[in-house]
């Protein structure tokens, strides 16, 4: 077993894990942070998206041991207290989720997108989110929610 010290959503966190366990396994099974979902375990669906030192990654493609000394961000850290992040609110306003299993990963990826590209085109949004599979919505309302959130965040900035 490996002992790891890391920071998750701003909180210093320690855990032990088997070297074979992924960061996703650790988040879900050892730290009870079940917001990140396992849709495939092979980096093809994006439901497990988290940020590591600000870069969005699939936590199923990161070993738990690699988290040592890193800053991890998950969906649980997007809202500030009771206040939803604008992208979370826009997802509700636009009915951009049906079942909601892909939503955490899409929100994490979207937050990273808008931090890097505050004024993305529809095409940019679609390609940025191509690794976040959604089977319910046909993406239409998701894309609209992201574009609308970007617009609001720009005018608030």
């Amino acid at each position: 077993m490996i002992h790891v010290t890391t920071t998750i959503n701003g909180d210093e966190t320690e855990f032990v894990c088997d070297p074979r366990e992924t960061l996703l396994d650790v988040l879900r099974d050892r730290l009870s942070l079940t917001g990140a979902k396992e849709g495939c375990g092979t980096g093809d669906c994006g439901a497990c998206s988290v940020t590591v030192d600000g870069t969005v990654v699939c936590s199923c493609l990161v070993l738990g041991a690699e988290a040592e000394g890193k800053e991890i961000g998950t969906v649980e850290g997007i809202a500030t207290g009771e206040d939803l992040h604008p992208i979370q609110q826009k997802f509700l306003d636009h009915a951009a989720l049906q079942c909601g299993i892909c939503t955490p990963g899409i929100l994490v990826a979207t937050k990273a997108l808008l931090e890097k590209h505050p004024d993305p085109t529809e095409t940019q949004v679609r390609y940025w989110l191509a690794g976040n599979l959604c089977r319910c919505t046909g993406y239409d309302k998701i894309i609209r929610a992201v574009m609308d959130a970007a617009k609001d965040m720009r005018s608030a900035a």
Binding site: T34, K37, Q88, I101, P104, L107
Partner: peptide, 19 residues
Amino acid sequence: PARPDGIDKVTGRAQFGAD
């Protein structure tokens, strides 16, 4: 209107099968 389970689903609180 916004769905009643919406906040749980955008904050990661909603509990799915494996959660």
